[in-house]
């Protein structure tokens, strides 16, 4: 009888660790990691000067500037209206509230190409809304403004769905306490509610921004796609690929990937900070 058990330990209580982890890693490598690594290798391949050459091309620069700029504006719009809509859905009762609550996810469910052509038809100069705006001298479709419109559509649910659960979990006692201490409703909102909701709002903003930078389907219909005016970075990647300019496409992709990984890191840090600040979820 062996008294030392360490030589032959019993297997883990729950079976299947090796096979599921192995499958997960293999699948992830095959479909995600190896394909993504091509961007890195191709970028190294073209060398610093080749990479720099692509990025200093004015057309590339404008496309990147446009993608990041419009995504930033759209995410800001969504931060404001997303917070308002989340507040409305959590705090108020009004006819059709549940329907609206469900409809907020429409941009997640609606294929981007459908959203793209619908928004274009809506905001074109002869469209339902576009014609009204046209009368006011505003042109939306086929301009950078149109891109913002498409990205607002795409990004809205990220903000609402990030903020909504936090607003639902807010302790009403705290608001009552603030009121009994003499705070006006506005004070309570700006000093008590908003700070509590801020991390989730930033998370939603970051998610909407990240999605907006890479968005393609809903944008290309409404953008007009004029080089150096309304041509977004993802479209330029497609154009370079169609020209068989793999290096040109890859350099833009590499930069966008690098920035979105930084964004991902920022979101993770934000969420970790929030967990620390509020002492667990």
């Amino acid at each position: 009888m062996s008294v030392l058990a360490s030589a032959r330990r019993p297997a883990r209580v729950i079976p299947g660790f090796g096979i599921t982890l192995g499958f997960t890693l293999a699948y992830l490598s095959l479909f995600v990691l190896i394909p993504l690594s091509t961007v890195a290798f191709k970028t190294i391949d073209m060398g610093w000067s080749g990479f720099w050459g692509v990025l200093t091309d004015p057309r590339t620069q404008h496309a990147l500037y446009l993608s990041f700029g419009t995504a930033l504006i759209a995410a800001l719009v969504n931060a404001v209206f997303g917070l308002l809509i989340a507040w409305m859905l959590v705090r108020y009762t009004f006819p059709g509230r549940r329907l609206i609550d469900a409809a907020v996810d429409l941009p997640f469910a609606l294929p981007t190409a459908v959203a793209g052509i619908a928004l274009t038809a809506l905001y074109a100069d002869n469209g339902w809304i576009g014609s009204i705006l046209h009368g006011l001298g505003l042109k939306v479709a086929y301009t950078p403004v149109g891109i913002v419109v498409a990205l607002v559509f795409i990004g809205l649910p990220f903000v609402v769905r990030s903020v909504q659960p936090v607003l639902e979990d807010l302790n009403l006692d705290v608001e009552e306490a603030a009121a009994t201490l003499g705070a006006t409703r506005w004070h309570t909102f700006s000093r008590v509610i908003l700070p509590a909701a801020l991390p989730s709002l930033l998370t939603g903003f970051a998610l909407a921004f990240a999605r907006g930078v890479g968005e393609y389907g809903s944008v290309i219909f409404i953008a007009g796609n004029l080089p150096k005016v309304s041509e977004i970075a993802p479209l330029l990647i497609v154009i370079r690929l169609e020209e068989f300019n793999y290096a040109g496409a890859t350099a833009i992709a590499a930069l966008m990937l690098a920035i979105s990984f930084l964004g991902l890191l920022a979101i993770n840090l934000l969420q970790a900070w929030n967990r620390r600040r509020t002492g667990g979820e």
């Binding site: 997960t24 890693l25 992830l28 995600v32 990691l33 190896i34 394909p35 993504l36 091509t38 961007v39 191709k42 990240a210 930078v213 890479g214 968005e215 393609y216 389907g217 993802p234 479209l235 990647i237 497609v238 690929l241 068989f244 793999y246 496409a249 890859t250 992709a253 966008m256 990937l257 979105s260 990984f261 964004g263 991902l264 993770n268």
Partner: peptide, 29 residues
């Protein structure tokens, strides 16, 4: 590992297509 699983959500769909062209396209690996 969890972060890596989430990775495709933070990659532009166009890049998702690009990587397969780089891998399997006529001028790919």
């Amino acid at each position: 590992l969890i972060t890596l699983i989430d990775l495709p959500f933070s990659v532009s769909p166009v890049i998702a297509g690009l990587i397969y062209v780089l891998l399997f396209g006529s001028r790919g690996w």
